[in-house]
Simulated scan of single mutants.
Amino acid sequence: MCYSGQIYADYRKFVREFGADMSFEHFLQLFWEKQGDGNWAKLPRAMRSALRSPHNDEERQLADLVAAGDRQYAAALERELFEQKTRLTAAERVLATKPTKKAENDRRIASDKIARAQRNLADLQRAELLDRDSRIFPGHYAPVMVVLGGRRVVIPMRYQCRLPGWTKVMEREKPGTYNARRDNLKKAWRQLYGYKHGIIIATAFFENVARHRLEHRELEKGEKVENVVLEFEPAPRQDMLLACLWSVSKTEGEADLYSFAAITDDPPAEVAAAGHDRCIVPIKHENVEAWLNPNPRYMATLDAILDDRSRPYYEHRMAA
């Protein structure tokens, strides 16, 4: 899941299948924090929608926050639409009389932003969920199952791990920490591997691949590298319990940041043949308990869990 993943964003799946508890406090804090800071869209729509049918008082409180956040997000999108339509009108007026490079750029950018805002507004208004509502990218949030205080809990965490001791500045300098490479677990990730393990549930992952590698050929003379996005899905379709590492970062004056990275390893033959050099690591159901309760004195046991992974065949296709 180097680039993006299709996840189960409804925490209730962890409750049903693994007996986990939803950490109300962590969900509450995250929804409070994000509803007014411009990052509401980083909470997957499927995760927000899961709380629209509350079963108790705590979930009703979260449902109210989701509704308020959606309203604020819709209002921000409406403002964006108005601003970009105004920008587009001004650019077209200039282009009709004396075309300039700035006006051409303004028209292009405004048109793109109008289309995106209209699409996001339409997403807010539709009732049914689509696959893209459960897709996460680096910086987005997902429910992660961990063990705290001897019990399994589900905490919403950011998909991009802030390593222990890092500041925001250090994080920006090394933005690739949504991946924890298997060959680096005992080096860069040594403070988390063996200590803070988690699991997310995914059904597919997406990767950036160079087209010439996908087509098994060399670049032609003068040809530039073209990127395509592939969706990899296990066949037959199945849930994948992805091995993750997580961290909590405490910053004075700010809410604690819970974040995670998906462990990746060398790819199976079919993923490598499609042009990509990494692959997620789905662990077996029978290894969940041992994975979530790591003991750093027995690293060989943890290594064996990653070796004894689920190994489905991954079919691929161009991502929509």
Rank of each mutant, 00 (worst) to 15 (best):
residue 191 Q to F: 12
residue 262 A to G: 09
residue 240 M to A: 02
residue 94 V to T: 12
residue 251 T to P: 06
residue 228 V to T: 09
residue 266 D to W: 06
residue 250 K to M: 10
residue 190 R to W: 03
residue 66 V to Y: 06
residue 299 M to Y: 08
residue 157 M to V: 05
residue 46 A to C: 00
residue 76 A to P: 09
residue 188 A to F: 14
residue 14 F to R: 07
residue 205 F to H: 10
residue 74 A to S: 11
residue 192 L to V: 08
residue 161 C to A: 10
residue 84 Q to G: 01
residue 196 K to Q: 15
residue 267 P to I: 02
residue 243 A to G: 01
residue 258 Y to I: 03
residue 71 R to K: 11
residue 17 E to T: 05
residue 231 E to R: 15
residue 66 V to F: 02
residue 73 Y to C: 02
residue 247 S to P: 02
residue 117 A to V: 07
residue 135 R to N: 09
residue 208 N to L: 13
residue 23 S to N: 15
residue 103 A to I: 06
residue 224 K to F: 07
residue 205 F to R: 05
residue 64 D to M: 09
residue 109 I to K: 15
residue 21 D to I: 12
residue 221 K to D: 09
residue 239 D to L: 11
residue 112 D to A: 14
residue 202 A to N: 09
residue 149 G to Q: 15
residue 185 L to R: 06
residue 161 C to P: 03
residue 137 F to K: 12
residue 307 D to S: 07
residue 142 A to N: 09
residue 248 V to C: 12
residue 235 A to K: 15
residue 299 M to G: 08
residue 80 E to F: 04
residue 58 E to L: 10
residue 90 A to M: 11
residue 191 Q to K: 14
residue 181 R to V: 06
residue 315 E to F: 09
residue 166 W to H: 07
residue 144 V to F: 01
residue 152 R to E: 00
residue 71 R to I: 04
residue 177 T to C: 08
residue 255 A to P: 05
residue 279 C to E: 07
residue 137 F to T: 03
residue 166 W to Q: 10
residue 190 R to L: 03
residue 303 D to A: 06
residue 151 R to I: 10
residue 50 A to N: 08
residue 183 D to C: 10
residue 168 K to L: 12
residue 156 P to V: 10
residue 291 W to Y: 01
residue 77 L to H: 04
residue 54 P to V: 00
residue 45 R to I: 00
residue 313 Y to R: 10
residue 191 Q to A: 15
residue 88 L to Y: 13
residue 82 F to T: 15
residue 74 A to R: 14
residue 143 P to E: 04
residue 257 L to K: 11
residue 225 V to D: 07
residue 191 Q to C: 10
residue 203 T to P: 05
residue 27 F to Y: 09
residue 9 A to P: 07
residue 214 L to R: 11
residue 251 T to R: 14
residue 47 M to N: 03
residue 102 K to A: 05
residue 168 K to C: 03
residue 230 L to R: 07
residue 310 S to L: 13
residue 139 G to P: 02
residue 50 A to Q: 12
residue 97 T to K: 14
residue 14 F to S: 01
residue 65 L to A: 05
residue 158 R to P: 01
residue 34 K to Q: 06
residue 180 A to K: 03
residue 302 L to C: 03
residue 122 A to D: 13
residue 231 E to W: 05
residue 255 A to L: 11
residue 39 N to D: 05
residue 1 M to R: 05
residue 306 L to Q: 01
residue 115 A to Y: 02
residue 263 I to N: 00
